[in-house]
Design a protein around this nucleic acid. Sequence first.
RNA 1: GCGCGGUUAGCUCAGUUGGUAGAGCGCGUCAUUGACGUUGACGAUGUCGGGGGUUCGAAUCCCUCACCGCGCACCA
Length: 704
Amino acid sequence: MLSENDENGKFLKPYDPAATEGRIYKVWEDSGYFNPDNLPNADSRKPFTIVMPPPNANGNLHAGHALFVTLQDLMIRFKRMQGYKALWIPGADHAGFETQVVYEKKLEKEGRSRFGMDPKELYAEILEFTLANKSIMEGQVKALGASCDWSREKFTLDPDVVTRVQQTFIKMFVDGLIYRGKRTVNWCPKHQTSLSDIETESVEENTPFYTFKYGPFDIGTVRPETKFGDKHVVMHPDDMRYAQYKHGDTFDLEWINGPITATVIKDSSVDPEFGTGVMTITPWHSQVDFEIAKRHNLDMEQIIDWRGKLLPIAGEFEGMKITEARAKIIEKLASKGLLVSIDEKYQNVVKRCYKCSTMIEPQVKDQWFVKMAPLAQKAIEAVNAGEVKFIPDHEEKIFRHWMENTLDWNISRQIVWGIPIPAWFKDGDAIASLESPGEGWVQDIDTFDTWFSSGQWPLMTTGYPDGKDFETHYPTDVMETGRDIIFFWVARMICFGLYLTGKAPFHTVYLHGLVNDAHNKKMSKSKGNVINPLELTEKYGTDALRMALVVGNTPGTDLALREDKIKGYKNFANKLWNIARFILESTEGYDPSAALSENDQVIRSEFDTIIADVTKDMEAYRIYLAAEKIYHYVWDRLASELLEDSKQIFAASDEVASASRKALLRSLLNDVLKVLHPFMPFVTEEIWQSLSDTQGLLMIQEWP
RNA sequence: GCGCGGUUAGCUCAGUUGGUAGAGCGCGUCAUUGACGUUGACGAUGUCGGGGGUUCGAAUCCCUCACCGCGCACCA
């Protein structure tokens, strides 16, 4: 019998994750096996590689991080045990705009503002903030049991990454895939930067639709405050109602601030069915109008400044915020008898900044753009060829749909926190170069969209183009990440990978859903329903949290994280603990070579069938099923039936039957620990270390 | 407007190639101090969103409708 003073006396008490996990993690880390080069027979192993999505180093880990760490660690531990050279590369993302937004909020709380700050000073402050967060996050990733190779950890601002990202930019510029363009961009007046199309949210809103008298025409608009400079009236060339007006005709009219001269433009992009079939254009503040103006070579003028206030062209309205100006402008037009009608029920799509919900102001600005069409074409081809597979597979349709309709990507950001764009300007010329091309050239002060660098992450982490891991570990195997960043990240990684190496950076994309609260509502600070995963690991143990995140959680589906579910798996960890205790106690001095009785052989092969089934599920990434199957075997079959049955056998005085059963239980326990290890690494390793017939770390045992 | 999901037990969700419905939590009854910060046995609750079709057989395949969620979208 076990006693308190025995080496294994700990089994007399319930399993204590808090006293176990840190110690076990250190044993693993010290073993060096997180680095696959140190694994037994490393050279003959086939590589299996996962690049960890680098968490944004601007805050604590949230429940979504816990999910991806768990899933990826599961895959890695499974493959490592299966004999692969399993490499999981951790990292951290400086997360350009995201981090800058977080830091600006912090400044705001301190009564400071980034505007007016010295850019170098601001950069240094954010860097310090980011590095501090990065180190906290590393500790949190470890607490979740991540068996990633810390010796290969990368940060998106590592000097080699920065240089390589800049070189990609230059290469794309030379290849004609990046151009400098004066085009309509999504401008956030609060954050004072342009944003890509996917960094805006289109929200349908009720906005009154005004119709004004514009000379002989009635024109409609939802934005009267932009209309000061409108001097072109556009209609469809085939619209017979306006056949008497010829393209290029001019006419005089009374407008907001007095008489102006307007010109008739015929353009087939105008929908004759909409409104009166006539509109005026504001090319500087509307993408559509900009396109029309460009087609007809019309001049364009800025009406609203970068802060969202009216410029001198607005006359008496100069300096007013557009929101306050609108009502006053309508009032003035009405008093002049130019207001025809108001449709109060009009539904309009408004773009908003995805971070602050400020209304995006379209502005014309010189920016760097990536030509997406040729890149997207290659990506679609790769998917068609089966080079990249999506789990769940319907995500492929979503990917395809986006890729087929993708617009050029604005990669310039007017913020300091990011990788500098290696570009130089002189007399309207723009070129890409790391060094100054000569006298008179001025360096671009913009930085890259953070996804321009993270899009190259699988290349950076494996040492593209000639690093030691590139040959062995690129293309990687699985990209496991959130469904919500399929466009931001997955699509771009595939494009960059194909462009730079001709190979997609991974063959499988496993997309998980969101981790929501217990009622399946999205977690948010404002709702106060944010669950901190680290608190859960402290309360229930990491193994319990991991199981709760994994069981029944199908890829692509959101998960409702319930504390009672985690508690259930804490009980399971304890159940396993007590199974071990029972087996240890009742098989003392057993004979490992005892022959199994016929019945025990059946029991053994029954478990072999379960193992084969679990293995199949794991290989097909049906982790949610694999977890449930092994759980049920352990609890319902092994504990509830086989252990109970064994008590009878041990009580009867049949030496042969007892010897057989003892050998059976030990063999079942060993393999249960192995199969459960990827799911519940801590408790299984802890038990493994207490068994007399086992050697080395469970972590590197051969999968049964 | 286009696209993608979902709708299964009170709640949160599984159901891998079509073969008479499952898990966890919760609930009810009984037992047990046992290897078990309990656990075990038994049990109740479902016309698997509505309708139609294919099939010997449909939660599962097809069509259609409804509702919920999400993504994309330059009609002023």
